[in-house]
Design a protein around this nucleic acid. Structure first.
Lengths: 192, 192
DNA sequence: TAAACTATGCTTAGCAA
DNA sequence: ATTGCTAAGCATAGTTT
């Protein structure tokens, strides 16, 4: 029993300075881990407090990662159920598609992951629709508030199409739907 | 020294089930704490990995809370510097205002908080502008991706104005600008 | 109502596979 | 590139002020 019988196998978590990580490989790992952690936190917040939460991260490469509208219920219903006089038939169609994708994801996840935690390339349109609806919704709310500040006129601009030319196209969009089953959502014991 | 000299003053953090909090007062507290934690995490991620991150949370009451574009540099520059042929003079104006608000906030924060961590009602327009620009930007990216899925046509809709009638108007928008001073941003040792 | 306090649960940096 | 491990840093539930 030497003074230090068990040599520590690792140094455990180390404090790091919050500044740009230079080592590219480490940046990639940190981004993945922290993004997952951020999304989990967002999901928990949304469930605990029944709030719509959206998290979006654009990597330097231009990839889009997003966690969408946890308590999707209100947003989705509003989006699918609004005065879509010309899109009447679409609501049902999308819902169907939604369920379809959901089952696929559950299957794909196998138990460790979540169906919605997939790259955008593999996601159905329903998810993107919902995510964008939430974004639009939130943006409108902010705009409204700005309007109250009596400067709305200054905001009547839209971004150019080349606003982000660094995009490479391998990003991912995650949508967390478990809030739709408030009595029956999945357990949080996922490891991303 | 008795076997239990120091009676534990608290039980420390307790594990909680991730489901909707019923007690309204507790929900309010949890929302505040976790939202702050979520924003901090987002800020760290953005700095560590140099990524644009946006977090939006809409409370059941309809209040909007948002943390915007940590690595605001690219977004802000793009927004202020885009082809605003009719808004040429605004860029400088906004920048000036930005700095103005920044100094105010630093002063107001006093050392414990961040100037941008204030309710929207107290924020200048610059922050709202940047936040909305980031949102628009991100939304466009997602839309673009959806377009690649050959279903963009399905998305040419906009939300009605009454999309959120539960809004009470006391939400807040936080914009984290420290990324603009990558060499000189504030320390993260805040406790909110 | 909001802020401060702690003990404990949770996240994650550094490795390893 | 991911995934799992461990230890230590960090976030936060319950409580007090």
């Amino acid at each position: 029993m030497e003074t230090s019988e068990k040599k520590k196998t690792t140094r455990g978590r180390q404090r790091i300075e919050i500044k740009k990580i230079q080592k590219r490989s480490q940046l990639q790992v940190t981004f993945s881990k922290r993004r997952a952690g951020l999304f989990k936190k967002a999901g928990e917040l949304s469930v605990l407090c029944s709030v719509d939460v959206a998290v979006i991260a654009v990597s330097p490469a231009g990839n889009v990662f997003a966690f969408g509208s946890p308590s999707a219920d209100a947003v989705v219903n509003r989006f699918l159920g609004r005065d879509s006089s010309k899109d009447v038939g679409r609501g049902g169609q999308w819902k169907a598609r939604y369920g379809e994708v959901e089952r696929e994801r559950e299957k794909a996840a196998g138990g460790g992951g979540f169906w919605w935690d997939r790259p955008v390339g593999e996601l159905g349109l329903g998810e993107l629709e919902r995510y964008m609806a939430a974004l639009e919704e939130l943006k409108c709310k902010v705009r409204k508030r700005a309007d109250e500040l009596a400067v709305a006129a200054e905001m009547e601009n839209d971004l150019p199409d080349n606003f982000l030319d660094s995009g490479s196209g391998t990003g991912g969009v995650m949508v967390n739907p478990f809030c739709d089953f408030e009595e029956n959502y999945f357990d949080f014991g996922c490891n991303y």
